[in-house]
Amino acid sequence: MATGILSVGLHLIGHDVLSAILLALACVLWVTLAVAFAVRFAVDRPGWQAASANPPALMAVAATGVLGTRFSLAGRQSLALALLALAFAAWPWLLVSVLRHWKRPAPGSAFLVCVSTESLAVLAGTLALAGCGDWLASAALAAGCLGLLLYAEALARFDFRQVLHGLGDHWVAAGALAISALAASKLTASPLWSGSAHQALRIACLVLLALDFAWYVVLAGAEFVRPRLGYDLRRWSTVFPLGMTAVATLSTSQAAKVHRLHGLGSVLLWIALAAWLLVAAGWLAATARRNPPA
């Protein structure tokens, strides 16, 4: 998810070579995790079912949606449609499984119920803009509205102490609003709606982005007040919201015709890329410590 959304962002600001490198890496990671997912399903069905009841399982849907969006932007519409079908096939089963086992208070990963749903809206909206059918824009609107309802439910369950004590996934509270704003920007850019409907979508897009910025400032400030140094796997769930906020800002700038946002989105994207490099370095160091050379 984090690598894929950075690839999308770099494509939007014209750094296509670096975007392609990250896209290739995202594809390798996606295939590796898909194989691991399938192998566990085959050899450890109880463990697979237990894992599917937790919100992180929905990352499979979100990652597939992000990857499909990048391929659509690259003109690979058939592949993007196939990834949309795959994500949509997995989404209801995983979503129901997670909702049935939700607990209070919930960590930041609970917001993945929104992220996964909005990822379908973003991909469907991107494909609609690429000329793959107006019905996809209507489907994106439905998924986007459902995603916001799920966000409200996740927020009601969220353990706000995670803002100061979370180890990374608490940032998904912001990332879920960012991907919601991105979905709204795709709908705003669609020619399917005009007049008051278009204006309502534009306002929704700007409001969602403003709420995302508010979360971003609060969470960034909390990191300074209570630094959480050292690598943790959940830090990848920090990189994704940083990248998604940047992409949502860039997309909103174009769709809502607020061109001043483009420069801000570019700055936020480079911040997200720096965070990606730091977390990747932490992951490599942690891997080296677990597997020292013989």
Rank of each mutant, 00 (worst) to 15 (best):
M244Q: 01
L123N: 13
V61C: 02
V96R: 15
A181N: 03
R290M: 14
V163T: 05
L167A: 10
G75I: 07
T252I: 04
G131I: 08
A53T: 11
L187H: 03
L95N: 11
A156Q: 11
A183H: 00
A128G: 11
R228Q: 13
V122W: 00
A87D: 05
S196D: 09
H101A: 13
L23I: 09
V43E: 12
Q162K: 09
L6D: 02
R45F: 10
M1T: 11
G14T: 13
Q49D: 09
V43R: 10
G265N: 05
L23D: 11
L67W: 05
L18D: 14
G265H: 05
S185D: 03
W270L: 12
A189S: 04
R235D: 03
W135K: 14
G4L: 02
L208C: 10
L269R: 00
C205E: 05
A139K: 09
A204K: 00
Q162P: 15
M59N: 11
A140T: 08
L120C: 06
S78D: 15
R100F: 14
A140N: 06
A143P: 14
G14E: 09
A152G: 09
L120E: 03
T287R: 15
G263C: 11
L129P: 08
V31T: 07
Y231A: 09
N54F: 10
R289A: 11
T249W: 00
G47S: 08
L67P: 15
L211D: 05
V207F: 03
V247D: 03
K186Q: 12
G68F: 00
S116I: 07
V258A: 08
P56H: 08
A288Y: 13
G265F: 02
A214W: 02
Q254L: 10
A214Q: 04
L99T: 08
A63W: 04
R235E: 04
W193Q: 01
